[in-house]
Amino acid sequence: MPPPPAARDRVLDAFERLLVDRGERAATLDAVAREAGVSKGGLIYHFPSRDAMVEGLLDRMHARAAQDDALMRAAPEGVVAYFLRTSQFADTPFDRTLVAATRLRSHASAREALAGVQRHWYDAVQTAVGDRTVAQMVMLMGDGLYYNASAPDALASTGTPQYQANVDEMVTLVSELVRLRSGGAGSDSGSVSG
């Protein structure tokens, strides 16, 4: 009798945890099976090779990225506000999958998948602001927010971030910049902020 479908997710969860916590070299088939609480045969039933596990993780990332893209484009507060708020690492399932995928940089398919996620974010932001340079600035702001939230050196000795980003003010500045770059005409900032 085949293992229950939940076993496949447990294997992917274990692979993700090992990648995030200990890196790619530690995420062997044996280690993943132990972490998932399945036999090696059970793991191989779902993922006959390590490459198959990598592809399974990337499929998970694509699915979560598609959900995030839909949420971002429909966000009442606007695309830019959503993007910047979610750029602060919050340990969501999507965050963990993204971090795990970054640990697989030695795999061309992981690099391509991560670049694809980045392109989707950029396309949504660029569509919202209507300006390539402003969109690039927003993307870099998101990168900085993510780094500040996740980098160990970004914490002061008190254990709190050295500075707290005010995303609302950032969104307001982006809206003002979009208005200025469009010649001061009343631009549709609804897609920038709600």
Rank of each mutant, 00 (worst) to 15 (best):
V99I: 15
A90T: 09
A63F: 07
V99K: 08
E55I: 03
A75H: 13
G56N: 12
H107W: 14
G78L: 07
V32D: 02
R73D: 10
R64I: 08
V79T: 08
E55G: 07
R73H: 06
H107M: 05
R60N: 06
V38H: 00
Q88I: 13
R103C: 05
T86H: 15
R64W: 08
R34H: 11
A31Q: 04
D59I: 09
E35M: 09
S39T: 15
P76R: 13
S49W: 10
A66N: 11
Q88G: 10
T102N: 14
R64C: 03
R96S: 07
R60W: 04
R73N: 13
D68E: 15
D95E: 06
S87A: 13
P48V: 05
G37S: 08
F94W: 12
L104H: 02
D95A: 01
R34P: 00
L57E: 14
A33Q: 09
P48N: 13
P93V: 12
A31C: 02
S106E: 10
T102W: 08
R105H: 14
R50F: 05
F94G: 04
A90G: 08
T102M: 15
R103M: 11
H46F: 14
F47A: 00
D68G: 04
A101W: 00
F89T: 03
G41L: 03
A33V: 05
R60S: 07
M53V: 01
R105L: 06
M53N: 08
T92I: 02
G78W: 01
A70Y: 02
V79A: 09
H46A: 15
A63H: 13
D30H: 11
S39W: 02
A90R: 13
T86E: 10
A90D: 15
A75C: 07
A31I: 01
D51R: 13
E55D: 15
G41W: 08
V99Q: 06
H62Y: 03
E55R: 15
L98W: 09
Y82N: 04
A90P: 01
A65I: 02
M53G: 08
L98F: 15
D68F: 11
A90L: 02
A31V: 01
G56V: 09
A101H: 00
F89N: 09
V99W: 01
A100N: 06
F89G: 00
F94L: 11
L98S: 14
L84Y: 04
R60Q: 14
S39N: 12
F83L: 08
L71N: 06
Q88N: 04
Q88Y: 04
D51W: 04
H62A: 10
L71I: 05
M61I: 09
E55L: 14
D95W: 02
S39Y: 05
R50K: 10
K40G: 07
G41N: 11
G41D: 06
A100G: 12
A31N: 03
R85G: 03
V79R: 02
S49F: 04
L43P: 00
M61L: 14
G42N: 02
Y45M: 05
R85S: 05
A75R: 03
V79Q: 08
A101M: 01
R50I: 00
E77R: 10
D95H: 10
H62C: 02
A27Y: 01
R73Y: 07
D95N: 11
V32H: 04
Q67H: 11
F89I: 10
R34G: 00
Y82C: 03
H62D: 12
T97L: 12
A90Q: 14
F47I: 00
T92D: 05
P93L: 13
G78F: 02
V99L: 13
M72K: 12
V38N: 00
R64L: 13
D68L: 07
